[in-house]
Design a protein around this nucleic acid. Sequence first.
DNA 1: ACGGGCATGTAACACGTTACATGATTCA
DNA 2: TGAATCATGTAACGTGTTACATGCCCGT
Lengths: 194, 194
Amino acid sequence: MAQKNVLQFIILGLLNEQPLTGYELTKAFDSDIGEFWSARHSQIYPLLNRMEGERLITHETEVTGEKLERKRYAVTPVGAEMLTRWLNEPTRTITPGKDEFALKLYFISDASDGRLHVMLQTQLQLHRSKLEHLEGQMKSKFSTDSQIRGHYGHYLILNHAIRRETEYCHWLEDALASAPAVADADTGTGAKRS
Amino acid sequence: MAQKNVLQFIILGLLNEQPLTGYELTKAFDSDIGEFWSARHSQIYPLLNRMEGERLITHETEVTGEKLERKRYAVTPVGAEMLTRWLNEPTRTITPGKDEFALKLYFISDASDGRLHVMLQTQLQLHRSKLEHLEGQMKSKFSTDSQIRGHYGHYLILNHAIRRETEYCHWLEDALASAPAVADADTGTGAKRS
DNA sequence: ACGGGCATGTAACACGTTACATGATTCA
DNA sequence: TGAATCATGTAACGTGTTACATGCCCGT
C-alpha cells in the first residue's frame, strides 16, 4: 500500500534543522539536495497541508511588509519521532535510477554510428557544467573544517555528487575516445569544441 | 502536456531489434536496462495496447502448446520513424536522479553519529553485490570483441553501470574510513542532537 | 500432482509535472 | 513603473506501484 513517500521525510528533515516556509522548502531542491531528490511547489504545498492535518508539523503565520503572509512550518514531536524512525530504519533498497541518455545509447548498436560522437559530446558538456557547479558549491559551503563537521551528511553527499559527475564525465570521455569523430560525415577535420 | 513518456521509446527500441511479447519486454527491465529505467508488466501491457491503437506497433498472436496465447509485437514504419526522431533529438537534460540513502545521510549532521557506520556498511554491501552482478553480466555478454561491436551501446551502458557502482562503493568506503566504528561513537561525548 | 515460470490483463491508488491563477514586495 | 522574485495555492493530467485476477505449460 502506501508507497514510500520519501518527500515527506525530506520535509521533516529540513524542518527539523530550522522552521521554513513552503517557498524555502521548494528552493532547497534547487541546490545540493536536488541532486538526489526533487519536487515542485505544486507538490510541496498540498503535502504540507496534509502533514499538518496529520499533526506532523505546525505552522505560524508571519507577515512581511503590509500584507504578504507566509507560513513558517516546524516539526511536532510526532513528526520528529517519525523522522527518527525513517533515519534509523535500514535502507535495504537501491533507489532505481533513470537516465534517458543511457537508454538512447543502448539503442545505438553500431560502434561506427555517426550520431554517437555528437550525443556523447553534448552530454559531456552538460555533465561538465554540472560538475563545475557542484565544485563551486563545495568551495563555498565547505571551505573550513568546522563547516564540514557541522553538516557532515551534507558534506558527504555533495562529495558523492561530485564523484558521481566526475565518473560520468570520465566515462563519456573514454567512450568519445573510441567513437570515430565524424570522419566521413561532415567536414572531415577534427571536431572542434565551442 | 504529454510528459515525456520515455518508456514508449524504450519499447520501440527493443521491438526494433526483434519482435517481442509483453512478457519478454517486462523481463528486459530485470537485466542491464533496468539499471537506467524500470517498468512493471502492469504498466507495459496497457501501454502496448495504446501504442497499437496509435499504429506505432502491431502484433501477431502465437500459440504455445494447446491453448496459451501470446502476442508478439513489432514496430510499424510509423513507430520506427518515431524511434529515430527520439534517437536523433539531442538530450539536453540530465534525468534527475533519486537516492533515498543519500537523503538520509544528508540529515546526519554529526560526524560522530553512531548510526553512520551501520548505514554506510549496509549500503556498501548492497552496492558491492550489485557490482558483482554487473560484472558477471559483462563477462557473460561481452567476452569477445565481436560481441562488443555488435551491441556497442549496450556495452557502453553496462560499462557505465559498472563504473557508477564502483565509484559508489569507493565513496562509501572512503566515508566509512572516516566514520568512527561503534566503540567510541555514542559514549559520553556530545551525544546526538535531534 | 504440484510448483515455478510463462503469459496477460485490470483496478485502485500514490507520486509527480505542467499549467493556471493570484497577489505582494523589492530594487533599479 | 516595470521586472524579478517572493509567496501560496489549485486543476488536470500523466506516470508508476501494488494488489488483484486468471489460466497454461513444463519439468520433476
